[in-house]
């Protein structure tokens, strides 16, 4: 069953640049999909439209049956609550502890304190940071900060996790640790879409790969099909 249906999506920015041009794509529930391509090929624009940071100029993006492009600004939160997003720069709040950064994403739902506590501890355990819950992000390594960001993104049990170059700032060893965490999350049933430049990771994980070039899908590879062809 498809979780995401992208139909003939086009994104033209105000300055006239066409970032995404007539892209159609379906992603099933529980899939792990890599989106790769050169800088400026439209990868980030495509996933920004998925979490409605950008609106498609034309075409349709259905996420769990909801037409994301037609959502009004004040209703955007509805879609954001169904997905998690992880960025290259972590986007953590430096004045909050690890625990508070993760709990932050649950407090907006008005959950009771003990329920928030249980969920935060569970997810910090999953990403291997249970021992550092009272630390501030500035005291953590890049990999640890990214794991906090992942924990925050999945703490409310989203169906979809969008990762925009999550290993872009990390060394190869730490990157693989992050990928292990993401694989574990995927095995629990969460669909993952990950934008990356890191071909080594794509090669090792052998997941479905979508190669974008100049805003269009240049090639699609099914699971295990992709062999190091560069980007």
């Amino acid at each position: 069953m498809d979780l995401i249906r992208i139909k003939n999506v086009k994104k033209v920015y105000k300055n006239g640049v066409t970032a995404v041009n007539d892209v159609s794509l379906n992603i099933k529930k529980g899939e792990f999909v890599f989106i790769i391509g050169e800088t400026g090929c439209g990868k980030s624009s495509l996933i920004k439209m998925l979490y409605r940071e950008e609106k498609p100029t034309s075409g349709q993006i259905l996420l769990g049956g909801i037409d994301v492009g037609k959502l009004r600004n004040r209703k955007v939160y509805k879609i954001r609550r169904k997905l998690g997003v992880v960025f290259q720069d972590f986007k953590l709040l430096p004045k909050l502890t690890v625990y508070e950064n993760v709990a932050f994403a649950l407090e907006i739902f008005g959950l009771p304190k003990d329920e928030i506590h249980k969920k935060v501890i569970k997810v910090l355990d999953l990403v291997g940071l249970k021992a550092k819950l009272n630390q501030y992000p500035t005291n953590l390594s890049g990999g640890e900060q990214q794991r906090v960001a992942i924990a925050r993104a999945i703490v409310n049990g989203p169906k979809l996790l969008i990762c925009d170059e999550p290993t872009g700032n990390l060394d190869p060893k730490t990157s693989m640790e992050i990928m292990n965490v993401l694989e574990a999350i995927n095995k629990l049933g969460t669909t993952i879409i990950m934008v990356t430049h890191d071909i080594q990771i794509v090669n090792e994980l052998k997941k479905r790969v979508i190669l974008l070039k100049s805003g269009i899908i240049a090639k699609e590879y099914a699971e295990g099909e992709y062999k190091d062809e560069g980007i």
Partner: peptide, 10 residues
């Protein structure tokens, strides 16, 4: 921005 990202309504 982060509040919006994690699904806080306006």
């Amino acid at each position: 921005g982060i509040m919006r990202l994690v699904g806080s309504s306006n």
